[in-house]
Design a protein around this nucleic acid. Sequence first.
DNA 1: TAAAAACTATCAATAAAACTTATCATTATT
DNA 2: AATAATGATAAGTTTTATTGATAGTTTTTA
Lengths: 312, 312
Amino acid sequence: MTITQLQYVLAVAEHQNFTLAAQKSFVTQPTLSMQIQKLEDELEIQIFDRSKKPIQLTEIGKKIVEQARNIVNESGRMQDIVDQQKGFIGGEFKLGIIPTIMPTLLPMFLKTFIKKYPKVNLKIEELTTETIIKRLNEGHLDAAIAATPLGYEQIKERVLYYEPFVGYITENHRLYHKKELETSDLDIDDILLLEDGHCFRDGVINLCKTPRAITDDHFQLESGSFETLIKLSNEDLGMTLLPYLHTLDIKESERKYLRHFAEPRPAREVSLLFHKSELKMQIIEALRGVIMGIVRGAIAFHNVEIISPVQS
Amino acid sequence: MTITQLQYVLAVAEHQNFTLAAQKSFVTQPTLSMQIQKLEDELEIQIFDRSKKPIQLTEIGKKIVEQARNIVNESGRMQDIVDQQKGFIGGEFKLGIIPTIMPTLLPMFLKTFIKKYPKVNLKIEELTTETIIKRLNEGHLDAAIAATPLGYEQIKERVLYYEPFVGYITENHRLYHKKELETSDLDIDDILLLEDGHCFRDGVINLCKTPRAITDDHFQLESGSFETLIKLSNEDLGMTLLPYLHTLDIKESERKYLRHFAEPRPAREVSLLFHKSELKMQIIEALRGVIMGIVRGAIAFHNVEIISPVQS
DNA sequence: TAAAAACTATCAATAAAACTTATCATTATT
DNA sequence: AATAATGATAAGTTTTATTGATAGTTTTTA
């Protein structure tokens, strides 16, 4: 049994197709077929059920894949150990970010990060939370930034900051004349929300359970942009909640519609996610350090109470 | 990086000698040298400091070895997974047993075990607790039976049974005329004990802290046999404590010296030990099943209160 | 339903690697 | 200083992984 064979198995398990898996592994299809057969012969089991199309894992195959992933991960960590010892922070690093965090957070830390760690070859992708989890489990992402808590067994979460929501309320709304909002003011049917996991923290109001928040009788919204929400809100279709950082670049003419909350402020928890195998942990820690530093900076220059990073 | 290379590294780390490590790995010395160099080149670090004699691990080398052991263990588990799926219980299994448990316990379960699991090629070695821990960590033992608790980070313990101690008290001893002993009767300076970890359980009296129990002013004892203790006791050098199973084959003429304890009986905890990686877990479970069954049997045929297996 | 496409297995040839024997260089031991 | 022990190096051999070509299936398309 070789590590290479295990990598081939993982590739086939993932793509459910020998030819494609071979391409992704940068070998020809016969190479991959033969190596997998060799492994199957050695273990005296069938890993894949080739009669089904697309190819399926056998029962035992699923366990083999799980263990193979484990071994391949642990092998990958060998280089991590060396890097860590050398104090080397570098190499390819794939980071996923959800759409509602990407435009506000990324510009804040990217420049600082690539300047501080020039040897890291950062590859950033905008992905949904669902895709992020899948990619992290498959090892195609090294880390991700998303709204939490998610509570996946295989994924670790490190809170970066809590981002309060700010109400966006136009003239004709019943709450327009309130100076400060209370969580008790909120009527769930009256708020325009995005689909991804916004959690009002500490269980004040937990909106996690509404995967597609906007399911009014009249319309459904699947856009991922707060711009859309603002526009809809301007059309008097309801109030909306914007994460604080998004409110920083709202047009001057619309700022008058912003209403902050009184304590306890509803907020979304934004965390750095990574696989529990903790591969490339030095880079993850470096990234976390940079972002947390930036967040502390943001507090200094803006409203101290707006962004509250986790104590540590 | 290959699994074979990692195995070579482990061999050298263990034997501190390339030539010997090569022999143990069933390859020639140049093969091993070259493969290790290749790995060092690939990782761009030195794993071994060849200037020191015997060869030493570098700082980073120690971490590499730790991770290598991890990967090799996980690789070994692949066959376990297959075996488990097939319901196959077989292959080589190396079991260590401490000297004070070996003669009484082994005859009780060996026949049953090899009959029930004929495909297991059991290799049993009598070893000290210290050696057992070392071998389990190095992967040269699959499991062991010893007095517990030991509390090693890397080693898991599964209690097999609690074996009460029975006093052996000759005519001239002050306690000879007591029908039943109390733990409060015991005078630690007056008892002949073996060196290995006898623990009076539940903190009644904890003798774990006396690594070499017999350190009288007059003599020291390093024998590992209760026979010796009995003979010394017969010479009026003090009373002794014998594990219950050892009292079963004491000569008729000496049985009159045996004194059982009143509750709470001091006892030693006897456990099955194995590495936390849980390699060959099916065989370990099979072994545990057989021994626990035998212990239950012993209770049925002897004194129910003598051996109390852990509830489960 | 026949033809085309997609996909995996097999075979022979080749490139890469792991391994061996022989030998050298260096470091301990006598 | 001689000897033994030990690891590195070199050249040659064996083994293994990989490739390109192709055959055999199954699925998709026309």
